[in-house]
Design a protein around this nucleic acid. Sequence first.
DNA 1: CTCTGTGTGGAATTTTTATTCCATTTTTGC
DNA 2: GCAAAAATGGAATAAAAATTCCACACAGAG
Lengths: 273, 273
Amino acid sequence: MIAPGTYEELRNELATRHKDLSKRLKQIAEYALDNPNDMALETVSGIAERATVQPSSLIRFAKAFGYSGFSEMQRVFRTHLVESGANYKERIRSFGRDDETSEYTRNIVLDDFVDGGIAALDNLREVVDPDKFEAAIKYLREADVIYLAAQRRSFPVASYLAYAFAQLDKRCVLIDGNGGMFFEQGRSIRKGDALLAISFKSYSPEVVQLVKETRENNIPVVSISDGVLSPLTQNSDVCLEVEDIEVHAFRSLAATMTLALTLVVALGRQLQE
Amino acid sequence: MIAPGTYEELRNELATRHKDLSKRLKQIAEYALDNPNDMALETVSGIAERATVQPSSLIRFAKAFGYSGFSEMQRVFRTHLVESGANYKERIRSFGRDDETSEYTRNIVLDDFVDGGIAALDNLREVVDPDKFEAAIKYLREADVIYLAAQRRSFPVASYLAYAFAQLDKRCVLIDGNGGMFFEQGRSIRKGDALLAISFKSYSPEVVQLVKETRENNIPVVSISDGVLSPLTQNSDVCLEVEDIEVHAFRSLAATMTLALTLVVALGRQLQE
DNA sequence: CTCTGTGTGGAATTTTTATTCCATTTTTGC
DNA sequence: GCAAAAATGGAATAAAAATTCCACACAGAG
């Protein structure tokens, strides 16, 4: 007897064997299919109570399907809960075992990054708050000149935005830190302009400082960063959250780039009107 | 002290109080925000291990936020896990409906780009030829200095690669055309180096010309471009094809960025050996 | 440099939870 | 309708998990 390792397999097994089960086990099977979340999260006695069976029946049930005990079966339900839920990070964690032959590896790598990128984009759809997005656009639309600040890994995003804004005939300044003049470039910002800053952990100190200074001068700051702990979030008028997934210790920019593009297009539409 | 009853409240609380927390509690706050699923499903000691803290710190953490113990706090994460899953399914169901209200429309834009990005990534998986990929890596690995050439929309990709190569201690020169010296920078390439050029239609004449010149000098040229008709394909030793999909007349860089990242990681592995 | 108080690691303890076992009940085959 | 087998309930036990507690480390004040 081999125990089903995935929720789908278990479901199948439950369906096919349902009619041959004893009264109590039938009852449990039905409950499990109706309330997979309970199966994933509740304790044996909790489920027993809700399903009006004895705790011991639940253990018998698990054993009848080949598991060593209830806990082992519960893992299947838990995994399913995580994977079916939008929460993408766990999904990512489950791949990326990469101790294969190099023949294999090269494709594995590309596949991993592609999967990671897709998961990041899926996630982007969920976490972007439409109100914040709208607010960000408003600041950018009203700005006379948009200043773009980003360093290191995030710099390409700013560079892309600079190109795209130029296409829209939206004036902008890309603070590239050329000649070590990051702050000199940044401080030429003035009333009527807006700063768009992009940085992820570990946050570029220059960008963080520039954001703070700009905010203190009552100039609007829009930022793109990761999560609520980011120092950008705390010092910006509006912060859009993105999280690009880390695969093999490298982070792609797929989601961030897509967000940037969306920002540009949305802004472009409003400018046309 | 009143404990946050929902995930969002807790998240907020974590964010605002993060800076005042002690070292360990900070560490836990970060872990919790990054791995909410673990917080929902794992045991105290399991989480403690993954977050490299002591079990007792987790209990202290929960109490610091007003809960009676870890278990009470865990309920918040569990509820969130279940509910976020439900929302996700809801979203999928309501997908593809686009009956106006600008309220709705702005999301449509993001959704479109996300879908476009996903499609582009899926496509990337298919069209990348492993042999060409391998060959590209070989040229780059053997190069003394990698020269990066790209203009306009593709420039951010080169900029990203420059950053990533530097991280790998691989020498490279980013031809950025600063001061109008595109060709001057490009012509400093010499035997033993390699050129990595990125351009899509309509192809940047400068990049195309540089590729041709470099090839004529018997220096290896690797390119990233779109399709067999690209003048880069014809004048490169190896050309990797990508096609980022056009949505609302704008092209994202999601797929190209992902390819670039993969290139970097694959190269990085070989350099380590 | 020493004292004081907060923060931390880790073992000990308590509580909760899973599992086993067996007496009792229900089904099944004759 | 009567054994024999299977299934069930529920208390007893074992296992695992959460929580407490205390000795020690460390940072900041004097």
